[in-house]
Amino acid sequence: MSEPIEGFMDRLSAHLDRGWELVTQGDLSGAMASAEQTLELDGESPDAHNLIGYIHAANGNLDMALEHYRQAIDLDEHYLEAMLNAAELLIHPLGSLAEAIRVLDQALESCQTADDIADASVLKVDALLQQGDRAAAAELLLGLPEGPYENEQLDFLIGRAHFELDQIDAATVLIERAAARPDASPDVLYYLGLLRDRQERNGEASLAFLKTRHLDGLLPSPPWSPTHGRFEKIVQAALRALPEGLTQRLEGNLIMVSDLPGLEVVAEGVDPRTPLLLDEMATTAGGEQQRRLFVYQRNIERLIRHPLGLQEDVQEILHRELEAHFNRPKDQPAGTKFSTKRQG
């Protein structure tokens, strides 16, 4: 290889490495500048398009992110990382499940290692489950290569898939192994809580959920997250836009917006990732119940599908969760959780 080509490739690698380093530091503007410098050197660099797609996704610009992932795949049809990034975005938050499965089928044809196969397969299992095809999901999970895997996170991802398929024994082994690591993520501990809840080991479930709530509180907000004051205005506008039947039931109630549920309510059994909590306070002299509606910004943001359409998404989430609360069975106590399943 000639010296000029070596120097050119070194500059490409330096800009890409710097871009990913800045992503890990949370400097998305600086990372984008490095990625764009890479494209200036080589307009057909799939690595640069993959990096730019990742930055756009982190900023909530999902359409641009997907476009750059597609360009990376067009430039290198075996580019596994770009395919997995695109599929993850298509599954959540975009919900384009058929396209995600098509991309993952292409990815599985390019997989070289057991880790690669497992990584692509658990994403496809997620997409199949969201499509309601539990049989196909279970069959795919059954065919995974046996571990151990180099990527320790796969224990959790495969364990979570087993849990969602109600394969509790298999889920227990993998989720417990993932939770035993000192660097276990809040997602791992959340699923440990779900597992213990399913096993009716209530004390252990509460402890896992309290740890989840603590670690969730340490995570940075997404770059597109609005200020507390702006989010309060978004919530107020969304509540005003609810159907009349719901607005009447909330009339006169105290609306409170905070980041996350307090540790004290999580200890009492409230889901640490519930987006809303309607708290029955007291009965007035006229016999009416007075309530406080708590809206949890960080948990709402976890469910947002289109960050650039935040107002519409918040309104949809509030509508769905309040409908579920008011239509709950009469023998189900209020103020614990809004959905029949905890928040994934």
Rank of each mutant, 00 (worst) to 15 (best):
P182I: 07
P182W: 07
D183M: 08
S185R: 08
P186H: 03
D187S: 01
V188S: 04
L189H: 02
Y191Q: 12
L192W: 06
L192Y: 09
G193N: 05
L194Y: 04
L194Q: 14
L194W: 07
L194V: 03
D197A: 03
R198I: 10
R198E: 01
Q199N: 06
R201L: 10
N202R: 13
G203E: 02
G203Y: 01
E204K: 06
E204V: 07
E204C: 04
S206F: 09
L207V: 05
A208I: 11
A208N: 03
A208W: 00
F209K: 14
L210A: 14
L210K: 14
L210P: 05
K211E: 07
K211C: 09
R213I: 12
R213Q: 15
L215F: 12
D216M: 03
G217S: 09
L218Q: 06
L218N: 09
L218G: 07
L219W: 10
P220S: 14
S221R: 03
P223D: 15
P223L: 05
W224D: 11
W224Q: 11
S225T: 06
P226L: 10
T227N: 06
T227W: 06
H228V: 12
H228N: 08
H228Q: 14
G229L: 12
R230D: 15
F231Q: 11
F231E: 13
K233I: 15
V235M: 06
V235H: 10
A237E: 15
A237C: 12
A237K: 15
A238H: 02
A238L: 03
L239T: 09
R240I: 00
L242P: 13
L242K: 01
P243M: 08
E244C: 01
L246Y: 04
Q248A: 11
L250M: 10
L250V: 08
E251R: 04
